[in-house]
Amino acid sequence: MKLLAFGKIAEIIGKQEIEIENFPNTDILVGYLQQQYPALKDLKFSIAIDKKQVNGNVSITTGAEVALLPPFSGG
């Protein structure tokens, strides 16, 4: 699957786009990412799968594109 990251999340992960192994659902994916990048634990973000926002724990189909969308405040 493809992971897209924006804003501070991309800074923490070090890339805006990475290919990673498939995860069955968003909770497991987020848990894995927080373990790999502990700084993510302090951040709020929304999740989209294939360009649609999802809420709660949602299953991820093989080859999906998951995006982590942090809030920006600047103006």
């Binding site: 804003g7 501070k8 709020k44 929304s46 926002q53 809030p71 920006f72 405040s73 600047g74 103006g75």
Partner: peptide
């Protein structure tokens, strides 16, 4: 709907702090 729990005001710096 996007962010029901707000980020803490210091979690994401603004342009005065990080530049733009």
């Amino acid at each position: 709907d996007l962010y029901p729990i707000p980020p803490s005001a210091r979690e994401v710096p603004n342009c005065n702090e990080t530049g733009v």
